[in-house]
């Protein structure tokens, strides 16, 4: 995703002189191509994310479109108040990009797990939040946010994610994409869990369960209609996110279901437990520790379980 991101950004920057890229001393061998082609619109601000975000707001409020780039929690939580006050409150045209959402940097330790960003940033008014599901969606997302006035958060994986969309889908901010139709349950995925979610839907078909798959690439504004139609047409929903089970996609979907007068549907939230992950581990290791998605779907449909917020990693 990050390769797709920088390629798409370079293409856009060649056409639009307002596009800047600022990084917090990360992006070696990734951002170089932008820095070399557009040196007057590239700044390595240094290991200083509060200043990174404030500077970005200042450049944006001078008539530019500014991308900030770093990894995991550094461009988000470290400078949260700058995002809140300097960027969002002023509707500055700043696009915050974080690479390594979820467990991408799993083995680096808990400091590098990006598990609360969506939930925390979702509470900021006017901030558009995108977590594309594969490199195809990433490319489309970058193109779209360039035409969007105002602040945006783009959560990316890293590199080498599988391509899920065989051809480019119709992509609009705030409009979920249905990848697979189904009758019994809808799996709503955000971010890099999309490929796994499609695989699980395929496997469930072999167990006699027909699962719709929806890519919720935009967490905010959420496509409420897609949620409600999933409830009405398939009768059950499982959300899938590489993020805390609190306040992210699952919570957003629950808010829609609970507050809508429309049909109710049982919901299960697949995501990271409300716990500290204190060990090393690959992305796959930590994903597995979140539980088996197919089993969760089966248990939801059999009425034996919803999500289990109390679950912990083995210590």
């Amino acid at each position: 995703m990050r390769t797709t991101f920088i390629e798409t950004l370079c293409e856009a920057a060649a056409r639009d002189e307002r596009i800047w890229l600022l990084c917090g001393d990360l992006g070696y061998s990734v951002l170089d191509r932008f820095a070399e082609r557009f040196p007057k619109r590239f700044v390595n601000v240094g290991v200083a994310e509060q200043n990174l975000t404030g500077v970005a707001a200042g450049i944006a409020l001078s008539g530019n479109i500014v991308f900030t780039y770093s990894i995991a929690n550094f461009p988000t939580l470290r400078c949260l108040e700058q995002i809140r006050n300097d960027v969002c409150y002023h509707r500055a045209n700043v696009k915050i990009v974080s690479v390594g959402g979820g467990y991408v940097y799993g083995s680096q330790g808990y400091t590098h797990h990006g598990l609360e960003d969506l939930g925390i940033l979702r509470t900021l008014p006017g901030l558009t939040i995108l977590a594309p599901g594969d490199p195809v969606e990433s490319r489309l997302a970058v193109s779209r946010i360039l035409t969007l006035e105002g602040p945006c958060y783009l959560r990316l994986g890293k590199a080498g994610e599988p391509v899920v969309h065989r051809s480019p889908p119709a992509f609009e901010i705030g409009r979920a994409i249905v990848l697979r139709e189904g009758r019994d349950v809808t799996l709503i995925s955000t971010g890099g869990m999309l490929a796994h979610t499609v695989d699980v839907a395929q496997a469930l078909a072999g167990r006699g369960i027909s699962a719709r798959v929806v890519s919720m690439h935009t967490l905010k504004p959420l496509d409420e209609a897609a949620v409600l139609s999933a409830a009405a047409e398939t009768g059950a929903i499982v959300t899938v996110e590489e993020h805390s089970i609190h306040n992210g996609l699952g919570s957003a979907v629950a808010e829609v279901l609970a507050t809508s007068p429309g049909p109710k549907a049982p919901l299960a939230i697949w995501g990271a437990p409300d716990a500290y992950q204190c060990t090393a581990g690959t992305q796959d290791y930590f994903r597995a520790a979140c539980g088996n998605l197919a089993d969760l779907v089966v248990r939801l449909l059999s009425g034996t379980v919803t999500s289990d917020p109390g679950k912990k990693f083995p210590s």
Partner: peptide
């Protein structure tokens, strides 16, 4: 920081 951004721009 915001002033730095404006000055740089």
């Amino acid at each position: 920081p915001i002033g730095c951004g404006m000055a740089l721009a």
